[in-house]
Nucleic acid binder design. Structure first.
Lengths: 259, 259
DNA sequence: GAATGATTTTCGTATTATGAAAACATGTCT
DNA sequence: AGACATGTTTTCATAATACGAAAATCATTC
């Protein structure tokens, strides 16, 4: 069913579909299944997979089943721009995680969603798990609302238009005026809450991270079971956000030049 | 000059070459450069890049320059098999890092090299940096020598045949009998040293990690400036290696069945 | 040991990617 | 400003390329 719109080059679309299909399974997958899953002819799938193997995007185990290859890891960790943020954020995130004993996430905006690009999880039995690379709509996350707020009212309207503000829980904001107000208020306060808006039982606190050019470059957030979340964290989190922004070259006041 | 041998599908080879080219640059790159770098016609490069963008393997920034896309991260972190090891190893590695105050690496074997798949770096100004996804030949690394030892003498001979045991520093072992002896001894001791064999000034201690089926699944190592390396770490490291193996389902004695 | 089911290879064909060149941006210099 | 230079994007006729049906090979089951 993964019928993506064509992009100009058939093989690349097909190769991408195959990679996705492989990624969907927790264990190595057979050619048969992959061909069925992607709707490709087996011989075509086989040929493309052979090429992907040659390029180390895919590996074949001893049983002849396919799994993702190390090249993806190699390339994945080199994401430009983000690689810096991730590396710099890591220690700060670990510090927060130890302080709160909860999951700390780093996210960036991509289109109408936030994408999780790094996380620090505590050593507790129960904690919020966010898969790196997974996505969530802007209007149901703390960081997302801040990003919307920073983008301005017109952008929020456009976003609402495009997405129709679907509800994820009964707490999700699905009403444009309320969303605009919430985003503006969050931005003004410097932090945002997510009160079980994306998932029941989970609450977040988020802040924005700015880069050297003064643009929003990422979001930093804590996710915890709602009953364990503490308002005291807000201060620490805002502090960490500022710290991280400074580390990325952000200058608080648009200082009057000098080289 | 990155002239890879053809794999059966031209476009995929070319797309891979483009991704590599992008990854080589720390900042977003222009089409011109990418075309030159890969030897592709600009219009071809442009078309392939457009397709890669459509599939989110590549992004274009506001200046029209290309950088790697988030899909790579998404897929990269889902590497099957390794994902478990990485996740389980993370806390153990962080513990070791805090204990030693040095970089701790997790590696797996791929062909004739070890690949770094996870690391924990200390908060010190000077520490050993290993890029995730980067590679090093087996015979100049601690973990690599253990893996060779575990593979047996015949495999070491074959490895030597294939690679010719190139020297990386004046301490590298480039002589087959010595390598065989070193590997066997390391395996017997349960740990291996790398005394500035891969890079001057850097010393490592490595141990192996076994999975549930009793196979070598990864290697765990500390890398430090040679002057700071301590023999006392060996014990802790071996301990951690055993712990991690157990966590992965390894059973010390090949217990006599029972389901 | 035949039969079933999956993987791999082959090969003629038409679809698909190709790249030269032309249009379009963008920035630079006088 | 205007015109040049440089880089990007689109077009389009062409042939090289990827395609997939079917045959051959391999593995597994009954």
């Amino acid at each position: 069913m993964t019928q993506n719109s064509p992009s100009g080059i058939q093989v690349i679309d097909r190769a991408a579909a195959l990679l996705d299909a492989i990624a969907r399974y927790p264990d190595p997958v057979s050619l048969k299944i992959l061909a069925a899953e992607t709707g490709l002819n087996v011989s075509t799938a086989h040929r493309i997979l052979a090429s992907l193997i040659h390029n180390r995007f895919v590996e074949k185990d001893s049983a002849g089943h396919y799994r993702l290859g190390l090249r993806l890891l190699q390339l994945g960790v080199r994401l430009h721009g983000n690689v810096d943020v991730r590396a710099i954020a890591r220690p700060i995130m670990e510090d927060l995680r130890d302080r709160f004993g909860e999951t700390v996430n780093l996210t960036i905006r991509e289109g109408d969603a936030v994408v999780y690009i790094e996380k620090a999880t505590p050593n507790r039995m129960i904690h919020v798990q966010q898969l790196i690379g997974s996505r969530a709509p802007l209007h149901v996350t703390a960081v997302g609302k801040l990003m919307l707020g920073a983008a301005g009212e017109a952008a929020i309207r456009a976003y609402a238009e495009r997405t129709n503000l679907p509800a994820y829980t009964r707490n999700s904001i699905t009403d444009l005026p309320r969303l605009i107000a919430a985003c503006a208020q969050s931005l003004a306060l410097g932090y945002a809450l997510d009160d079980e808006e994306a998932e029941m039982d989970v609450g977040c606190i988020g802040v924005l991270v700015y880069d050297g050019t003064g643009n929003v470059s990422a979001g930093l957030s804590v996710s915890a079971p709602i009953l364990r979340r503490r308002a005291e964290w807000i201060e620490d989190l805002m502090e960490a956000g500022k710290r991280l922004s400074l580390d990325l070259g952000y200058r608080p006041h648009p200082g009057p030049s000098a080289t």
